[in-house]
Structures are given as structure tokens and as C-alpha cells.
Amino acid sequence: MAEVKILLAEDHLVVRNGIKLLLDSQPNFEVVADVNNGKEVLDLLYAGLDTHIILTDLSMNDMDGIQLIAEVNEKFPDIKVVVLTMLNCEQHVTKSFELGAKGYLVKNVASDELVFCINHIAKGGRYLCEEISMQLLQKMIDKNNHKSLQIDPTELDLTSREMEVLELLGEGYTNLEISKKLFLSKRTVEGHRQNLIDKTKSKNTPALIKFAIQNGLIQ
């Protein structure tokens, strides 16, 4: 199996030494250098260091992983960047891949998944760790389940005036305030509110607002 040269960027020495030990134990991996931050990575690359993969944390001083990904993708497009971080939020995952990362792992990943990821990316693939993949999948499932609970607004037969009242109720306005905004009497507004409660089969105004948000009638 061809040798995969790896440059490791991690600002916690104990963590870095542990990762380096694991990678060096693989017969086809060679850690060609290990450094504290993105700036040191770039210094080595500009000095001519030969590497196939950069394994980097995101949270580092001087130059963080996000900046490093962007710089490497622009100046050294043949080098593949893999993120290994504690940050598992969707925003960081998306940003990393947008800037050119080929893989994203969280630090509690099992050693065999880390090894698989690097081998897979070295062969030209891309990789997102199981934990985040399942997290994103569950989010999609929850979103679809939420959509399936939503009703068709046309079934409620709400008038345009009732929708105006509903939106203002959702913004926290009182019946009196709504009456002034819509140039209606307070009694008329109260009638529209009661119609909304009846049509949505809600117990009261807070329940009406909750129903409206859950079913996409108001934001």
C-alpha cells in the first residue's frame, strides 16, 4: 500500500502526541511534521515540505483551521485537508467543506474510523464522521416529521383579515392594539380572535399561537 504523508496541526501537545502515535502505528502512514497552528503549517508548505494530507484542529491560535483550509485550498490544491475537532455544529461542518476540506471528524471518533477516513480521502474520496452524519440525518427526519404534522392552511378557511389578526397576535399585540393598527373596533378584533380559536380548535390564545407556529401559519 502506498505511503500517505500526513502533516498534523493541533495546539494541545498531549492530544497531538497521542494522534501522532496512532497515525505512525499504521504501516502506510507517515507523520512528516506536527505543529501548533495553521501558520506553522503554511510555513512548512512554503518551505517545500511534501505532504498528502493535513489533519487539523479548528480552534488554534495565530491561524485557526478555517483560515488554514481556505489558504491551502487556494495555494496548495493538491493537498487534502481533514478536520479533527471538538466542534460538531452544522455551521462549522458546512463552512469547512465550502472552503475545501475533504473530511470532517470529531475528536471522540474511534481510531479505526480516523484511519479509514484518511485512507478514503487519500484515494480521492470525501468523508463526514458517523456522529455528525447521524446528527444531520436525525435533523432531517425530525424536520420531515414536523412537516407531516402540518395541516393545509386552506382547510382552515381563514379569511385575510383573520390572518392579519393572527400575525399581530403572534407578534404580541393586544386586542386593543390590533384594533388601532387595523382600524377595527376592539369587539371586531375579539370576534376574529375567537373565530381563529374555533377554527383551529385551540383552547385559548397561547394555544392558538403555538398551533399557528407549528403549522407554518406564522413565523
Rank of each mutant, 00 (worst) to 15 (best):
V109Q: 01
K102A: 01
K123T: 07
E98P: 00
L182H: 04
D152G: 11
Q219W: 08
N108F: 05
L44D: 01
D24M: 06
E164T: 11
L208M: 10
E30K: 11
L168D: 09
G65F: 04
L58A: 03
C129F: 13
Q150T: 12
N17K: 10
S96L: 03
T200S: 09
L87K: 04
L182P: 02
V165M: 12
N61C: 05
N28R: 03
I151W: 15
T174D: 03
L158Y: 02
K180F: 07
V109T: 11
H192N: 11
N145A: 14
V35S: 03
K181D: 02
S59N: 14
V32E: 09
A47Y: 06
G216H: 12
N215C: 11
H52E: 04
L105W: 06
K203E: 09
A207S: 09
S148K: 14
A70T: 03
L149E: 15
L182T: 01
A33P: 03
V15Y: 05
T94D: 10
I118K: 09
I209N: 12
I141Q: 14
H146E: 14
P206V: 04
D24Y: 03
P77C: 15
K186G: 00
E113D: 06
L114W: 06
G18I: 08
G170S: 08
Y104R: 05
I54A: 07
H52C: 01
L45E: 06
K107N: 02
K181G: 06
Y173C: 10
I209T: 13
S25K: 08
G100N: 10
K180N: 09
N145L: 15
N108P: 01
T205G: 02
